[in-house]
Computed example of a mutant assay.
Amino acid sequence: MDSQEINVSLNHAVKVKLTPEGYSHLHRKGTVPPEADREGFSKWALWQLFESFGEAISIGSPTYFEGGIFIDRHELGL
């Protein structure tokens, strides 16, 4: 493994700030998102996020997360 690479497990916790389109997508699926913190971020296991949005994400699809997917460096042991 290159020293610049980071190993990310599907079990790692990630945070996203859902957009209105993200909340609508989950509502259509009947999925309740994890509770958002005071800054609007909800915490997911990466596999849960993939399971909830994977089939809906493609080039040209709506933006479901504001600013991307975030993972805490401490979660990675850095």
Rank of each mutant, 00 (worst) to 15 (best):
I6G: 00
H27I: 04
S24C: 03
E51C: 04
S58F: 11
E39D: 14
W44F: 15
A13P: 00
K17A: 13
R73T: 10
F53D: 09
W44M: 11
K43H: 12
V8F: 06
R28N: 14
L76P: 03
G54W: 08
S24N: 13
N11S: 15
G60A: 05
F70S: 01
P62W: 00
N11Q: 14
G60D: 10
P20N: 12
R73F: 08
N7Y: 06
E75M: 09
H25L: 15
A56C: 03
P33N: 10
F70G: 00
G60K: 02
G40R: 03
R28E: 15
D72V: 00
S58W: 04
F53K: 05
P62L: 02
W47H: 13
H12A: 12
D37G: 08
E39C: 04
V32F: 01
V8L: 15
K15C: 12
S3P: 15
S61I: 05
E51W: 04
L78W: 14
D2Y: 05
H27P: 00
R73L: 12
E51V: 02
F65K: 03
L10G: 13
G54D: 10
V8M: 12
V8C: 07
R38H: 11
F50I: 15
Q48I: 00
V14R: 09
V8S: 05
A45P: 01
P33V: 11
D2F: 05
S52N: 14
L46R: 10
M1F: 03
F70R: 02
H27R: 11
T63H: 02
P20G: 08
I69W: 02
G54N: 09
E55L: 08
V8E: 05
H25Y: 06
F41Q: 03
K29A: 13
S58E: 13
G68E: 07
A45L: 14
D2V: 05
G60V: 05
N7P: 00
R28G: 08
E51R: 13
D72C: 02
F50C: 12
D37E: 07
F53C: 07
F50N: 12
S9D: 11
G67Y: 09
L18I: 02
Q48T: 03
F53I: 07
L26R: 09
S24H: 08
F41P: 01
A13V: 07
E21W: 03
M1G: 15
P34E: 11
I59N: 04
W47G: 00
L76C: 05
M1R: 07
M1N: 07
L78G: 10
E66I: 02
R38P: 00
M1E: 07
G68N: 04
I57W: 02
Q4H: 09
G54I: 08
G68K: 04
P20C: 01
P34D: 11
D72T: 00
G30Q: 01
